[in-house]
Amino acid sequence: MSTVRAPSDPNAAASQDAAFRTRADQVYAQLKRDVAEFSLVPGDRFTENEISERLGVSRTPVRQALFRLQQEGYVEVLFRSGWRVLPFDFDQFEQLYDLRMVLETTAVHRLCESDHRVDRSLLDSLASIWLVPAAQRSADTVQVAQWDEAFHCALVEAAGNAEMARVHRDVTDRIRIIRRLDFTKQPRIDATYDEHAKILKAIRANRGDQAAMLLRAHIETSQAEVRKITLHQVHMARHAGRTRRPGR
């Protein structure tokens, strides 16, 4: 005699799926932070169990997050031996920097056009960070790196093209770890303050060609620094990060 099973509650199943997706998103975001903050560096190996135990979640959301990171080129699965953080793809970084250059120089030209409506309050908020006396500049490398990202994203968003801003955010996300390495050096932080200030002043004066020229030089300098990055620098950055966060 066969047993008749009561139909499962579709709402409960949907709720469980949503919970798994939420946890997978959280794991995904944390692992990306680990890479960006050098807790995980190219060549590091780990297992799903290790991540599950560290983050206090089951293996299912961990596996979902890792497959997503694999598709984005951050990690690879190793046959019967867990996962590995992939080496930097410097050819891809070069291409992403080229795309960033096109997006940002186009944006600043639009910001300087007389018939283009610009959110002046946005420019004022950027000025409050970058147009300050040297004595008021931040020495916090993590904070300055975050402000740098926000500066460039704000310029593109202010241009008013939502699709351009979306693509630029994606590029920003993919080059974040390289930019963080660039900000481990104090001279680069000082230069960023100086260069951002000049770019902002040119935009506020509606000098589009000058703003684009300054921005291009600024990005090219950062791109040149990327070419000098070595695995030794990555491991030094991890050591510095652990020193800054002793409780981690």
Rank of each mutant, 00 (worst) to 15 (best):
Ala6Gln: 06
Ser8Ala: 15
Asp9Val: 13
Asp9Glu: 01
Asp9Arg: 00
Ala12Asn: 04
Ala14Arg: 11
Asp17Val: 03
Ala18Asp: 13
Phe20Ile: 12
Thr22Glu: 05
Ala24Gly: 09
Asp34Ile: 14
Asp34Met: 15
Val41Phe: 08
Glu48Lys: 09
Glu50Phe: 10
Glu53Pro: 00
Ala65Pro: 09
Ala65Thr: 03
Glu72Trp: 13
Gly73Ala: 02
Gly73Val: 08
Gly73Pro: 06
Phe79Ala: 13
Asp89Gln: 03
Phe93Arg: 05
Gln95Trp: 14
Tyr97Leu: 04
Asp115Val: 04
Ser121Ile: 01
Ser121Gly: 00
Pro133Ser: 09
Ala135His: 12
Asp140His: 09
Thr141Gln: 15
Val144Gln: 03
Gln146Lys: 06
His152Arg: 10
His152Trp: 11
Val156Ala: 13
Ala158Leu: 09
Glu163Arg: 08
Glu163Phe: 02
Thr172Phe: 06
Asp173His: 07
Arg174Trp: 09
Arg180Val: 02
Ala197Arg: 08
Lys198Ile: 00
Leu200Pro: 00
Lys201Ser: 01
Ile203Phe: 00
Gln210Val: 01
Gln210His: 05
Ala211Ser: 03
Leu215Asn: 14
Arg216Glu: 10
His218Ile: 01
Ile219Pro: 09
Gln223Tyr: 12
Lys228Met: 11
Ala237Pro: 15
Ala237Glu: 14
Thr243Ile: 09
